[in-house]
Design a binder for these strands. Structure first.
Lengths: 339, 339
DNA sequence: GTGAAAGCGCTAACAC
DNA sequence: GTGTTAGCGCTTTCAC
């Protein structure tokens, strides 16, 4: 950026050739005298020439950069996804700009706006928990900017998506709870409009039904605030006239909060209540008792999302959005009873 | 990027004014008829005009983007730093491109190269554990590209730095171990060339000395591979003829590994051996026993690094690199004996 | 207050 | 095979 950066013009001048020859040599294009090419390359090396990507980008109308928006960078799940994206992108000569929405729709919108202004070639987005309108996403599609939604997706938008099989994960988890003898199983989920929360809820209710267990509405919670609402959900479950013997939680952080509440009330886990989370945060294997959870392949989600984007870049014209569903795995640890 | 993006030329045409007037109105420059300005702004709004930052960047020779390179994105410490950087940057109208070196010098170099090619305004870098030559950093300084090193820094480079007071942290930790009655205290560190590892070592040795405890070379380990070497260090400590009664570890992951080894050998923590880590990973408060550790303000490091960069952007001319040293805090938990 | 024009560094016709 | 030229979309002199 500074002064002093060498340009192809400098090279051309010193070599007594035209800038187009230099340009061609650099990109080792079709027709250029091997001898001259060699000289150009050597001089470029010697002068530490670095192509100005900003200029290139303006000219070729693409940036080889992709934008990613996540709710919060320093949640292990998201940083793992980002790690996966970055690694995949790097090997395909792409850079990545990151933003975090901090669970705010407004920030999410301005993030996207900023990325678009920077003309990223595509956007990989995981929605904020607050996001319940999708105009800003639709606007991207209308501009034919490739979008891949991951993890926190919505059915309202016709874009590429990569998710894990939340329904199956929740179903397996619930099924397991039933196998271990639980019959009064509660679900503490997220906001109603959150796709993953609904899928998990559905997996849970389907498993109950398959096993002839009636769904109890008092056992289902939709938490908007993943802090306070979770606390009060846990409280309610304890003070209700029917006590659950197991709880399926939206994710590990929720599960851990619930565990803390229970511990402080001397409720034994898993003897009194079994608890299952979702995600497999690194904490979960170390907490006491270690948390049974449904693991999601975070890095893989990132890689697949990036790959999906690259595919779309190729086909562009007749592109049909796809949804990749990745498998989950039930990790049985010590927060649930044994069979 | 796509077709269809509105340009100032489109606005000018529709409004029957020149593009320079539009440009001025948009950036609400000095002299422009308020009436016309209003029209421009309205039309821009209506047509969803978005300035092409790539073109702007080329013209004004800066990108309002900063590049960050960390060893691994999905380590909690680094993702927290990134989060801090991103948040600070966003409020100052900066974007951020991220890369991870995966602890490889070669990748670190190509990351930096890529970011420079994209003409980021500055670089915030935490060095890979493999990095023991600094030409690639010096090259940046020579090109007068602002660089801020954080956490994993080196004394060999004359750039802005933000670190935590590792010496003091290690010193406080060692001091505390001594207070609790430990006399045979070992240190398991990282590669010799790693600044933070050395600082911590120094804090440790100084504390020993202050308390009249002789330094035992058999009690100091430099691990290059933070996995295998740590294991064998733990093994050695157990099988040596003098057994330590406490271990200060380079960081929490190292401490946790050591704990696992000890647990598998039925060594009681802290009764047989006290253990202290560094960083305060989220795991550390949940592990059994919870880990006494020296916490570092990760977000704050990110914010300060970003702030330092912005400062440097302003002064540019007569700039003197500074090193910000942030305070650490000893978090006493249950992996150490009580006083 | 406004427009014409130059140019940021590069690519890609288009001629020769 | 090589040079000339015209932009990419924007900012910023410089005249008027």
């Amino acid at each position: 950026m500074k002064n002093a950066q060498v340009t192809i013009r400098d090279l051309a001048l010193k070599l007594g050739v035209s800038i187009s020859t230099v340009s061609r040599a650099l990109r080792n294009a079709s027709n250029v005298d091997p001898e001259k090419k060699k000289h150009v390359l050597e001089l470029a090396e010697k002068l530490h020439y670095q192509p100005n990507r900003v200029a290139q980008n303006l000219r070729i109308k693409r940036t080889n950069t992709l934008g990613v928006v996540v709710p919060q960078i320093n949640l292990h799940f998201f940083s793992s996804v980002i790690s996966g994206i970055q690694e995949y992108a790097a090997t395909h000569n792409y850079g990545v700009m990151i933003c975090q929405s901090l669970e705010s729709l407004e920030i999410e919108q301005s993030n996207i706006q900023m990325l678009v202004a920077n003309r990223v070639d595509g956007l990989l987005i995981s929605l904020s928990s607050e996001t319940d309108s999708y105009d800003h996403l639709q606007a991207l599609l209308d501009k034919r900017i490739p979008v891949v939604l991951f993890d926190r997706v919505t059915e309202s938008v016709h874009a590429n998506k990569v998710i894990v099989d939340d329904h199956d994960g929740a179903s397996k988890a619930t099924e397991y709870l039933i196998q271990t003898g639980c019959r009064n199983i509660a679900y503490i989920g997220g906001p109603e409009h959150l796709y993953i929360s609904n899928q998990r809820l559905k997996g849970y209710t389907d498993a109950l039904q398959r096993n002839g267990i009636a769904l109890d509405d008092d056992f289902v919670f939709h938490c908007h605030d993943l802090k306070n609402d979770v606390m009060s959900a846990a409280d309610q479950l304890l003070s209700g006239n029917k006590r659950p013997d197991a709880i399926l939680c939206l994710n590990d952080p929720v599960a851990i909060q619930v565990m803390q509440v229970f511990k402080s009330r001397n409720i034994r886990i898993p003897d009194d209540i079994s608890i299952i989370g979702f995600t497999d945060e690194p904490v979960s294997q170390f907490i006491e008792p270690s948390l049974t959870t449904v693991s999601q392949p975070a890095d893989e989600i990132g890689r697949v999302a990036a790959a999906l984007f690259l595919e779309q870049m190729d086909q562009k014209d007749d592109f049909k959005p796809v949804t990749k569903v990745l498998a989950t795995e039930l990790l049985i640890r010590n927060s649930t009873r044994i069979i």
